[in-house]
Amino acid sequence: MAGDLRTSALRTTVAGLRATRRRRQVLVLTGMVLVVLVAGTGALLMGAAGLTPGQAIAGAVGLGDKGDVFVVQKLRLPRVEAAVVVGAAFGLAGALFQSTLRNPLASPDILGISTGASLGAVTGTLVLGLSGVALSGLAFTGAGTIALLIWVLAWRKGLHSIRFVLVGVGLAYLCASLIAWIMARSQEQEAAAVLTWTVGSVSDIRGEQLALVAAGTLVLAVAVAVVARTQGPLALGDDNARALGVHVDAARVGALLLAVALVALATSAGGPIAFVALVAPAIARRLVNDGGAALAASAATGAALTLVADVVGQHGLLGVAAPVGIVTGLVGAPYLLWLLATTEKRSR
């Protein structure tokens, strides 16, 4: 009887602890959404045509002055939306890579998937003279090809994390080398244009392309939510995960496929916006700090990071109007370094 009482008290404690963790996740999510809202509002107000908050809101819903409506709906809002969508996709993809491969460095930047997209785009521009949708297509193909190559080359009776990561890093360096070589061999003007693409930018994503990327990201995010539950057991090691009933290879392949698709989609639209996929999950995991993969928080952090970076870059806070990819590293990396420097020493 006493034991039952104690157990039921303990059950309340357990539920309470779980609620605390959940609250922390929600808190981080809310915080990031707030950052997105504030930065987004700022982005709508700032610019050559200065708007009051009232005008901006009226413009956003299609009321008020025709010029304001045009500026807000056609120019500023799409850019904000693009930053949020692309950033969330990168953040989510990075979190999936890192938790599935159990390596905090595993991100599309370091695994060569972004670099593959860049190589596709660089070849498209400098060698084949492509632009626009064809260029996006080639970037998508580049990312996909590299992912496929990693897959084929790393597969040996199942997918081992360390093989996947090593092969990915090797291919990343290979692509980066080829990009550097192509750029060294091409005309100065063209090389400069390519440099801008390889940095990544959300300024030209609008209309159908934006809708496509947003819809794609949403579909993939729902799919991620379905596979997300395997991430908890997977983090305990392959054997433990199998003993808990996870199809380890299938789960890993599924998660990585989704991550690759997210990266390819986001990159084809915005270019390989540097380090969002690396930095956002690292920040999110440290903020949530429950030993989980922090998937939702990573997506939100990615969106917030990208949007803030775009606002900073667009409005010349660095002295020049810089594409978002330049600023993401500058905004995210110091924050990550600060988090790393202040986390208490933990013995591993």
Partner: peptide
């Protein structure tokens, strides 16, 4: 089965780790 090669993820707390044993009993969204 408790294998030898068990990894406790960074930052995970006791109740949370134990709760991962519930995985096979949980549905789609865990």
């Amino acid at each position: 089965m408790l294998p030898q090669s068990s990894i406790a993820p960074d930052g995970v707390r006791v109740a949370e780790l134990v709760a991962r044993g519930r995985y096979p009993h949980q549905g789609w969204f865990g």
